[in-house]
């Protein structure tokens, strides 16, 4: 339990820096941009209390906003995603619940479980983010395409990270 705190602090810093300095500078064909920093919310321990989950999401989103000069945009989307997290977890819970001492990762609950869990939250985040950014329905399908492509890329990075960085 003591190790959880420093590990998560390092993780949030690394993810914000990685997002701001590397991913935000990659320009894939103009409209696809992965938002890999959501991995932080996905990997928080099962026991994280609700208020802490939402506060962390807010802080994480806001720190991305500061560097991207989009006040409130990522914060709103990340808080929305954090709000959905317990609901999605309940929905996909194994028959005898989550075992204490485990984390929401491929290693503990398998590829299928993780993909479903991550996909729903990543796409919820991206939908909220891109439609809030555009804030009109006139280019609905163009925005939809941006959501899908960026979402797939983010999801790809999230799943890959499970095999390369967080093997345990």
């Amino acid at each position: 339990m003591i190790k959880v705190l420093p590990r998560n602090i390092i993780r949030i810093i690394v993810l914000v820096l990685f997002q701001v300095f590397i991913l935000n500078n990659l320009q894939f064909s103009g409209f696809v941009n992965p938002y890999f920093y959501v991995l932080f919310i996905l990997l928080l321990p099962f026991e994280t209390p609700g208020w802490l989950l939402l506060s962390l999401a807010f802080v994480l989103g806001l720190s991305i906003d500061i560097f991207a000069q989009t006040p409130g945009l990522h914060a709103a989307a990340t808080v929305f995603m954090a709000y959905l997290r317990p609901l999605v977890m309940d929905y996909f819970a194994p028959r005898d619940g989550y075992i204490s001492g485990t984390y929401p990762r491929v290693f503990y609950y398998g590829f299928g479980w993780f993909l479903q869990y991550a996909a729903i939250l990543v796409f919820a985040h991206h939908f909220f983010l891109f439609y809030l950014e555009v804030f009109r329905l006139s280019d609905f399908f163009f925005t939809f395409r941006r959501v899908i492509f960026s979402g797939i890329l983010t999801l790809f990075l999230v799943v890959i990270s499970q095999y390369f960085i967080y093997r345990r």
Partner: peptide, 12 residues
């Protein structure tokens, strides 16, 4: 959740 969203959307 609602409070955080209000703060964030106000900023936006």
């Amino acid at each position: 959740f609602i409070l955080f969203e209000i703060v964030a959307l106000t900023l936006v």
